[in-house]
Amino acid sequence: MCYHDGGFYTESITWDTEYNPRSDITLYVRGKGAAFRICYVAKMLADSPPVLEQLGKSYQILHKDDPDPRYGETVEHLRRPFEELMTHLAPNPPPEYLHGYLYPPWFILEAVAESGHVQPHFNTALSRQEFVRPGDYVDSKFLQPHLSPLLDSKLNTYSSRQVQVLDHTSRLVPSRVLVDGTVYFFKPWVSGRVHGYYELQSYRKILAAAEASPPLLTDARICRLHGLIIDEDDDVLQHYHLDSDEKDYPGTRLVGLLLTYIENKGTLVDLAPWSDCKNEDRSRWSGQICESVKCLHAAGVAWGDAKPENVLVDKEGNAYLIDFGGSFTPGWVDEDKRETVEGDWQGVQRINDWLVKWSNEPVHRPERAVQER
């Protein structure tokens, strides 16, 4: 569980998994173009019983197997004393280009106790050696077979220094970006993610089909690959000098994909169940999904994870298929039919049945949900 507030996002929290009322707690926070590790070390707070007692109470809430309704409040309570210091340490102005988001300065902060209260303390900045680089090496034996055909194609490649960030997700991950005057959706490349390899294969087939027979995918409303973001290793993280004993890591790294940016109203899940959604819309979406899947199959591509969450509705009310990373979702596609043409049609039929259900039994949208849509 992660929490975002005030320009900072708590990516993860660690503590002793075996119950220990004197456990240390560490928060990993991103925000304002920087990354932070906030350390609550019980031994350092031992001279202040009130602070140590509060740390123990926080641990009891975080450690529970069942989610505690106070979890989010506890995370915020632990992070809040450090926000002023984090704002001071963060770059000013925040980074405008993707490079600054991918390779932020990292700072280690720690809690000290003064007059019975937590006071933030700057410990150090992480060296380059300790920084976890994003992406995968292009010449990786796992990535190379899937990536090479794309690199050999007419697909454009860019460095993260060329990608301007226009917007980001609630997790502060860049999402809407600008490259050469065109807006794209940025998808980070996650190292070792098997579904990512499947996705590259799918996009390669889509590109090859579009080039060989342009009319084949003309009617397909799908998310497409438009470019790759590849960084040189010696261009990574210029905040610190290389340590003398650090080995060079020659080569380049795939750090992200540039995909079709779909200005949208939401997914089918966000729109279809509600009474303010027209039946003619549901019927149109069903037909558009079917037509796009036909086009994909003609290009030799299986959608893979067919489900309402993987259908975006654009501002004009048209349904677009997204997420070609394969796999399956129980209830929509059976496991033995995953990543197959048969599985796609099973998913399409179940999506259609689901849309029909909401056509017959729509749910009244709460007033607040209408306002936030």
Rank of each mutant, 00 (worst) to 15 (best):
T182D: 04
W358Y: 13
T260K: 13
Q164M: 07
D323E: 03
K247L: 08
P330H: 02
G100M: 00
Y101M: 12
R373Q: 08
V190H: 03
M44K: 12
G325W: 06
T14A: 15
E130F: 02
L172H: 05
R204G: 00
H241W: 13
P188E: 14
D139Y: 15
Y97V: 07
D234F: 14
S160Q: 01
S292W: 08
T252G: 00
S327F: 01
F142A: 14
D276C: 02
D305C: 13
Y19D: 08
G343M: 09
D270V: 10
S244Q: 14
A369M: 14
D245P: 01
L237Y: 07
Y240R: 11
T267V: 06
Q129G: 03
E339G: 07
G31E: 04
D281Q: 02
A302H: 05
I108F: 03
G317N: 07
V333T: 07
E372L: 07
G116I: 00
G325A: 06
I229M: 10
L45K: 00
D353C: 04
E246L: 13
S23R: 00
A369G: 08
C295M: 14
H4Y: 01
V370D: 04
Y197H: 08
R30K: 12
L312F: 02
L258P: 09
D248H: 15
W189L: 06
P67E: 03
P104T: 09
S153H: 13
V183C: 08
P104W: 00
V269L: 14
D235M: 08
C223L: 12
G116N: 02
H88G: 02
K205V: 02
Q119R: 07
D334A: 01
P94L: 01
S153Q: 11
L166C: 15
L296W: 11
P104H: 12
S115R: 00
G325R: 05
P174I: 12
F131Y: 08
L257Q: 07
P67G: 06
E199G: 03
K141I: 13
C277T: 09
S148G: 05
A220N: 13
T218M: 13
L178M: 10
Y19E: 14
P273F: 15
Q144P: 02
E11C: 05
P93V: 04
G347K: 11
F122I: 03
G326Q: 08
A35K: 09
H117V: 14
D47R: 05
S286T: 01
Q346E: 04
P93D: 05
L237I: 15
R176M: 13
G256T: 12
D344E: 04
T17F: 09
Y59D: 12
D323C: 06
L312V: 01
N360D: 01
E96C: 01
V41L: 14
P95A: 02
Y101Q: 13
K247T: 03
I108M: 10
I351C: 04
K307P: 00
S327L: 03
T124H: 08
L200I: 11
T260W: 15
L150Y: 05
E335V: 06
S48W: 06
K32T: 02
L143M: 12
T260Y: 12
